[in-house]
């Protein structure tokens, strides 16, 4: 198997003289490796590139390769090797993907942004997964003036689950809206790790929220500082896989599908292109895509409301 695309931060790890690590987790389309305390991902052709990720050129199912958790992974010459199974990934990337956030896009006009956000709301309404956190967030429209005009749809969460989380999300959004950053620390901790998924629904929402705020805001450096502080506080409160995603997102580094969706909303591209990009995002995982997109939507709405777009 040959690795044909790698992100710059994956490449940086690979280019070190030597590394040894272990298999962290294995799924059909991806395999996560834990190397020098960093989580790296190798994905198949169905996976989109993202931070610390490399893609092979084959439609392989990693679960079928009998790769087990904790198997040793090494670098040998230009290969990543799982010695126990004699599985080799030849590292020959034809493309090194830039994982940095793209913030030098031409911003869409405010009127056009409103139009796009209305469309986005409809897309989430029509195509979003009802098992996601999205209906709970949209149901907060009576609590926030800037959400007053949105529609909501029925949630699949039980009352017990919903009652548990809804107040926490409301408090988080209230703190972000009012720049109560001291409170955000505690509130974020009270939100992270809710939901059955490997990347819990609330984590995906927060990942999207940070992305929406960072990409649409005016003060990247300040925001990154705040978010990096925030993710330090949630270490150990969620799964490794989800935490890694949040750490990357706190610096504006997200999967290409998420990046393209955010840019398609905020930049001067057509609604058709936006619909296409957003549709690709919504398809990620079971509810992850909907949760992330809801976070992006809320992040942008918040910045528009605060006059920071």
């Amino acid at each position: 198997m040959r690795i044909i695309v790698a992100s710059d931060d994956f490449d940086q790890v690979f280019q070190s003289d030597y590394f040894i690590g272990r298999v962290h987790s294995v799924f059909n389309n991806v395999m996560n490796l834990k190397i020098n305390d960093e989580m790296l991902t190798i994905g198949n052709v169905h996976t989109s590139i993202g931070p610390k990720t490399a893609l092979v050129n084959e439609n392989i199912n990693f679960s079928d390769l009998k790769i087990q958790q904790n198997m040793v992974v090494k670098k040998r010459n230009n290969e990543i090797l799982i010695e126990e199974l004699d599985i080799k990934f030849l590292y020959q990337p034809r493309e090194i993907w830039n994982s940095s956030p793209e913030l030098d896009y031409i911003k869409v006009s405010t009127d056009e942004l409103h139009y796009k956000l209305n469309n986005l709301e409809r897309i989430i309404f029509a195509n979003g997964d009802p098992d996601s956190i999205s209906p709970i967030v949209f149901d907060l429209r009576s609590d926030f003036k800037w959400l007053a005009d949105i529609e909501t749809y029925p949630t699949e969460f039980t009352d017990k689950h919903m009652n548990f989380i809804v107040g926490r999300i409301k408090n988080l959004l209230n703190a972000v809206e009012k720049d109560l950053w001291g409170d955000v620390d505690d509130l974020a901790k009270s939100v992270i790790g809710f939901g059955p998924g490997l990347t819990p629904a609330s984590d995906d929402f927060v990942l999207g929220l940070m992305t929406g705020l960072l990409y649409s805001g005016r003060n990247y450096m300040r925001d990154v500082e705040l978010y990096q502080h925030f993710v330090k506080l949630i270490n150990g409160r969620t799964t490794d896989v989800s935490y890694e995603g949040l750490v990357n997102a706190s610096r504006g580094k997200v999967n290409q599908v998420i990046k393209e969706a955010a840019l398609s909303i905020l930049s001067n591209c057509s609604t058709e292109v936006m619909t296409d990009k957003v549709d690709k995002l919504i398809k990620i995982g079971q509810t992850s895509g909907t949760d992330i997109l809801t976070g992006i939507f809320i992040g942008i709405k918040l910045n528009v409301h605060k006059g920071e777009f």
Binding site: V191, I192, G236, R237, T238, T239
Partner: peptide
């Protein structure tokens, strides 16, 4: 779900937790 603090707290809140569940980790 995974043993995140929030999922454990939810389990406790809805009376579906015990010492063993309280002791698990996020992974």
């Amino acid at each position: 779900g995974m043993g995140t603090d929030l999922n454990k707290e939810l389990a406790e809140r809805i009376k579906m937790s015990n010492d063993e569940i309280k002791a698990i980790a996020a992974n």
